[in-house]
């Protein structure tokens, strides 16, 4: 079965799907800025967006709360989806995602170290916190990689198992620190790790945007090789793909993207797992189309999930992970049932 054949079998042309997704993303952005736990009329929102001083309530809500938060949700959703896509591609396993491979836990651990050193928090330099989370993510990824490697190869089962083990190890490190050190700052970390899309400042958004761009560029460049890798490492080797090199590139890029997402928003489950699957069910297994599809779909998904988290139980706010799992699971089942037999993986 060639990649092109599978792509055709999965249905619509990539360009059409991408245009639809871009429209959906634009609509999510629009709705997320218009709607919140405080009801503002469209006129108030528009006035708040373009005029109104720093003491104006509507302007503050729209410009300083909804807009940055919507952008953050979009970028984090895109990052997590991209990371999930990358990890699934190189492990050739549909269950791989940043949390299954232990990379999320590594990033959380890196963040905790940053907090303990007193260099994290909302006022901290976003580049520095991202670097620490990235460092943790990369450390976990390298450990997983090293443990899973057998005779210079990366078998699927050992990769997943070592991912789970490393993930549990770093999670227990974080829990140990929160219990033993009992420092007031670490209680904040616990909330943060539960997933917290608080208003982000421009610096954080900029760093995240750049990291996302790097991730997209790397995965897009590697996409043709990832397609060949999907055929199996033997075939990929015969076709001239240096499988290990490709894996290393994608591993580092996906870890970087994961670290950035977690440093800004804590760990948010389910996005990295289901969005790449949804993209694959829409467009088939061609990674050249999957990269932009996952990014757009992930962004729209997390923006809408966060809209739910902000409004469902207002004035109380839910952790966004509650919504992503609650909506993600049935959506995933639906997509799975609809495409059954299409052999989308």
């Amino acid at each position: 079965m060639s990649v092109q054949a599978a792509g055709r079998r999965a249905g619509a042309s990539p360009a059409v799907v991408l245009m639809w997704l871009a429209a959906i993303l634009a609509a999510s952005l629009f709705v997320s800025v218009m709607v919140g736990s405080v009801s503002l009329t469209p006129r108030e929102v528009l006035r708040g967006l373009f005029e109104g001083g720093s003491q104006d309530a509507a302007a503050t809500i729209v410009r300083k709360i909804r807009l940055p938060r919507t952008l953050l949700a979009g970028i984090v959703g895109a990052c997590l989806s991209l990371a999930g896509l990358g990890f699934q591609a190189i492990s050739r396993n549909p269950l791989a995602d940043p949390s299954v491979l232990g990379v999320s836990s590594g990033a959380s651990f890196g963040l905790m170290v940053a907090v303990l050193l007193g260099i994290a928090g909302p006022t901290a330099n976003p580049v520095l916190t991202t670097l620490f989370a990235f460092g943790g993510a990369l450390l976990a990824a390298i450990l997983v990689y090293a443990i899973a490697r057998v005779d210079g190869r990366l078998p699927m089962t050992t990769l997943l198992l070592s991912g789970v083990i490393i993930g549990l190890f770093f999670t227990s490190c974080v829990m140990l620190a929160t219990v033993v050190l009992a420092a007031a700052e670490l209680q904040g970390v616990v909330f943060w790790l539960m997933g917290n899309l608080a208003p982000a400042n421009a610096g954080t958004l900029l760093v995240l945007g750049v990291v996302l761009l790097v991730g997209v560029v790397v995965l897009t460049r590697q996409a043709p090789r990832l397609n060949l890798l999907a055929l199996g490492e033997e075939q990929a080797l015969q076709l001239g793909v240096e499988a290990e090199r490709v894996k290393r590139f994608v591993f580092v890029a996906a870890s970087l993207v994961t670290g950035a997402a977690i440093s800004a928003a804590g760990s948010i489950g389910f996005v990295g797992l289901i969005v790449p699957h949804a993209a694959r069910l829409l467009l088939g297994p061609d990674h050249r189309a999957l990269v932009p599809t996952s990014v757009l779909l992930g962004a729209a998904f997390l923006i809408l999930a966060d809209l739910g988290a902000r409004t469902v139980a207002a004035p109380t706010e839910l952790p966004v992970g509650v919504i992503t799992s609650f909506c993600g699971a049935p959506l995933f089942v639906y997509l799975l049932r609809r495409r059954r037999g299409a052999e989308a993986w």
Binding site: G36, S37, V38, A57, T60, I61, K64, I65, R66, A198, P199, R310, A314, P315, T316, E317
Partner: peptide
């Protein structure tokens, strides 16, 4: 409850 800045504003 965990509040949202929007509500505070």
């Amino acid at each position: 409850p965990r509040l949202n800045w929007e509500q505070v504003v």
